[in-house]
Design a protein around this nucleic acid. Structure first.
Lengths: 217, 217
DNA sequence: TGTCAAGTTTTCGTATACAATTTGGCATCA
DNA sequence: TGATGCCAAATTGTATACGAAAACTTGACA
């Protein structure tokens, strides 16, 4: 279990799903995938179970596994939860964070600013991720950190999308600055509130994006 | 997958672990369990994967699966996250809840009160659970509801423990009343805050309980 | 007596074989 | 013509077989 094969296969399949190689609703054929990856059905099935636990596919008894449709509603719900988790991280971090960690957060934030000024969206995304991951860790709650990372990972492609919107990056940057200030002052409630809004806005932007696509398409 | 066998087996194993039939750190022997349940190793392994995803066991490559030690620290961390999740449910529910649902919550709460007056701890626990589950649902966020239920389930044995403490049930009851009042008034922030404290206290009580056991033993 | 190395044994991870169930198509009948 | 029942093919779920890696045993040597 967690055998090196099925580990890698699960990873690969996850990428394939997130990148849209398998359309939502598609049935994933065990035999076909087994041949494709040059292994037997067993590791494929193990990978399926992991994907299922991660919520990426749905297993229907005796019928197979299907790529889950992540509806807009569910996605917005997930953003709402992400907002609360990040708020929780912020609330706790504001009380517990050490000066050294504050500096590291500041460094990640500086990376964001540099990427913004360079107009480098991918770079901004990466540094932004570093900022948030660092924040999760500084909550001082390893379990919370894990849950936050798990959901962050699942929302990754959609968080990325909304960065494409005009003016979103400078806005996001301002939000980061405000969050940093609250953390530095140790104002837990303000940090929580700012972080909740910061993520909630991402959900909102995503909703706009989807609505735009729908009317445009 | 999600075959009826391995489903049931995972369920059974989970109960066995939570009830302490397998001490933390124990290795779970695939072959032995297979014989015990009258199946082959395959369904056992599938069950293991589910338990692993749920965080109940740890899989060490090429060595086997072990019942995870849930340390006091991690448990307190989980209570902290539970507090934040319930707070989130409360915040959202305060804005979204319908009158009919308020009545249902009130009914569950009345059940708690009846059990308290009858001195029925198990009954109180059950009605209390009904109250909380209902609240999760009334957040109007199915994803949040699912996450809350998942963590609630994992904390179930420990939430139960702290009810044994003298005076805890009336105190809990008072907290419920206050929460109901906030919800009825639609005061989101107060509902969130009260719920956070309500659960945080449970964590705190649990900590006291553990400390007591340690000095007593 | 303690330590280390080689061989044996156990156990995991994967492959393959088999059984049970669903699905699709075709024939039959109202 | 449309609906229904049955058979065949495909697919899942489970069992078993096999190769590889780790743990344990044994025995020799310092």
């Amino acid at each position: 279990m967690s055998g090196s094969r099925s580990d890698l296969i699960a990873e690969t399949l996850e990428q394939d799903i997130l990148r849209g190689r398998f359309a939502p609703g598609t049935r994933l054929d065990e035999t076909r995938l087994a041949k494709e990856h040059g292994v037997s059905r067993t590791p494929i099935r193990e990978a399926f179970q992991r994907l299922s636990a991660a919520g990426l596919v749905e297993q229907v008894p005796r019928r197979g596994v299907f790529v889950r449709e992540i509806g807009t509603v569910e996605l917005l719900e997930m953003f709402e939860v992400m907002a609360e988790l990040e708020a929780a991280c912020g609330r706790l971090a504001a009380r517990r964070i050490a000066d050294a960690a504050l500096d590291e957060l500041e460094a990640a934030n500086a990376g964001c600013r540099a990427a913004m000024e360079a107009g480098d969206i991918d770079g901004y995304y990466l540094e932004n991720e570093r900022f948030h991951h660092r924040l999760y860790a500084e909550s001082g709650n390893a379990f919370l950190c894990g849950e936050a990372r798990r959901l962050h990972r699942r929302l990754r492609p959609f968080r990325r999308m909304q960065l494409q919107l005009r003016g979103r990056i400078p806005q996001s940057m301002n939000e980061h600055e405000a969050i940093m200030a609250a953390l530095r002052e140790g104002d837990a409630e303000r940090a929580a509130s700012l972080l909740r809004d910061h993520v909630a806005i991402q959900g909102e932007k995503f909703r706009l994006l989807v609505a735009g696509l729908r009317t445009a398409g």
